[in-house]
Nucleic acid binder design. Sequence first.
DNA 1: TCATAAGCGAGACGGTACGTCGTGTCTTACG
DNA 2: CGTAAGACACGACGTACCGTCTCGCTTATGA
Lengths: 194, 194, 194, 194
Amino acid sequence: MAGSGSDVPARSRWSAREAELLAITLQLLQQHGYDRLTVEAVATQAKASKATVYRRWPSKADLVLAAFIEGTRLTVVPPNTGSLRGDLLALGTQVCRQACEHGSTMRAVLNEMSHNPGLKEALQNEFVHQRRLVIDQVLADAVARGEADPAKFNDEIYDLLPGYLVFRSLLSAREPTDETVRILVDEVLLPILR
Amino acid sequence: MAGSGSDVPARSRWSAREAELLAITLQLLQQHGYDRLTVEAVATQAKASKATVYRRWPSKADLVLAAFIEGTRLTVVPPNTGSLRGDLLALGTQVCRQACEHGSTMRAVLNEMSHNPGLKEALQNEFVHQRRLVIDQVLADAVARGEADPAKFNDEIYDLLPGYLVFRSLLSAREPTDETVRILVDEVLLPILR
Amino acid sequence: MAGSGSDVPARSRWSAREAELLAITLQLLQQHGYDRLTVEAVATQAKASKATVYRRWPSKADLVLAAFIEGTRLTVVPPNTGSLRGDLLALGTQVCRQACEHGSTMRAVLNEMSHNPGLKEALQNEFVHQRRLVIDQVLADAVARGEADPAKFNDEIYDLLPGYLVFRSLLSAREPTDETVRILVDEVLLPILR
Amino acid sequence: MAGSGSDVPARSRWSAREAELLAITLQLLQQHGYDRLTVEAVATQAKASKATVYRRWPSKADLVLAAFIEGTRLTVVPPNTGSLRGDLLALGTQVCRQACEHGSTMRAVLNEMSHNPGLKEALQNEFVHQRRLVIDQVLADAVARGEADPAKFNDEIYDLLPGYLVFRSLLSAREPTDETVRILVDEVLLPILR
DNA sequence: TCATAAGCGAGACGGTACGTCGTGTCTTACG
DNA sequence: CGTAAGACACGACGTACCGTCTCGCTTATGA
């Protein structure tokens, strides 16, 4: 059955102390952005020393990536509202909230990713893949309910909904609204999927 | 009237020397990324001194933004292929190429933008607005040819095509292909617009 | 012979404009010291341009030296009070006043001199030599009046009076007073010279 | 009391690393002069970084002053030859050597001092005062031996010997010789003090 | 009377040093 | 032994000044 959910949401592998460091990193990141975030500040605020940070993450970039993944990992929840439309709206709303909340972090990670293949791969594995699973499940549920035609699925643009919303959140000055999500779902996605 | 094209593509306001500095900045940016780009290197390669750079742009971030805008400004061309489908495919292809070419630059600018309202506004005015004009013209031409129904236009998601493609280029690991563009146009946009 | 005075005090070779530049230089020099004096400031204050300054003096050091020499040249006056004691007191007082007035300038010139043989030579020719002539004349006058014994003259320490006073003005924190001069003259020099 | 010598020569307050930095500074200072000395060069030669230098001394001027004081502090030695004449000759010789050796440094420090009251005070406390103590002791010893008459001491010109010699070393082009010292002592000072 | 040149203001420029700050490594001392 | 504290080498940032240079504009003379 779809969504048998054999993937337990991967309990965090960080200790309490590490989680605290990541939380502080995330907070400072949102406040000041990547460039103006200093490892020194993270350590100071955690009453730790820089060495304590660097012992766990080999560089500022790794620290920030870990903080970002940890910060977003918690919120990946398959919607399961009972209808395809409801699921898509929920998914879109969730993406908007996340992208808004972690906007500067994502931009920072994104930028660093450009020239750090390791980060890129890590981001793909730990972030993108999780989200793909959610979408697959929503669609599978819809098919199971007879709300969507599997023949209409298109792997090329399976992430059109979250993709465009993320674009709107991170790159455009027009933050997506509930109306944006509604229109996307009702006028673009549902006509295609049915 | 549609396609009247009274907007000359906004002649650059930079002198030859400044354009040279921006070009070098852009090149080094693509090679090394924002963090590993040094103003000193830009100056050296231009046989200039740091002061010459800083006289024009007050910081590294401003320099990079200017280089980015200059680098992309040159390539904004309304397609005008004669059909809506052709225009949309051309537009999509152009977006893909630009986003691919200037990917790391865009990511860098994006990141810096997060905490620099001046940059954000500048980017909106000089970059986003230019692209909106192109889209408006494409749609207006289509209406003039009877290929699109103005009632179907939706301001909320008018940039769905470039938006999703940019998302794919900059954030996803799946760079968009010609097939991506084709599917978007044929299976998403055209059904909606007609 | 005493007072033969064939040396006219060497009319300044500077034009009015040049003298103005030197005066401004001297003033700024006394206010801010050598390091914090900028050629730019001299030019600005004279409503001139840097090129105008550099056309006349090849470097900041030369400019400052010229300003210093011009500033002190005006005040070299053989005392001629009628008695050796009066002449020495007058000489001492004059030295004190000059050294006090142009203290920071002298220190600056001195410093630059260290590593600029040209300046060193120029300073010797144009400054030290002038002062030697004055002392020689005072002593010659005293001999002519029978107040001093030529046999007691000592070339090694002929400048003991101005030398010690200059030391006090420039290097020590104890600026010389009239009493300092009096003691030097009455208790050191006169006993020796008679 | 004469020779009570309770003043231990004030152990340096610098660590080994700091002393090394100061020694390098002093060496480069003597080679190149103040203006042409760069903090970068000091750091490089010490295999240190600029930050390491600036952590200790807030500016180049402070660094140079410290180097100068450290460089001269080591050599302040009361002569104690057994006779007033011997002590004075030794003192004069020592002053000549120091002033010659550290000439450009002294000139540089002097210049900087002009507009830096903090430096001026520091120089007075740490440098001038040390030298005063030596002179006082020499004279006290002479009195104890019956070689000098305390009534003849004159606070106004107590430093006539070192003062004039320093003047000759730093400001005049006529560096003092042993003969200069001898004449000063035999023909000027001893007649006065006895 | 007008043109051709010489001098000047303004200020951009290449270069170089300054003093600051952040990263990532390392040592020291404490618990 | 792990940690807090923080010194350290490295290197980029952004600023300031020096001495050179190029622009126009003025002025002062010579045809």
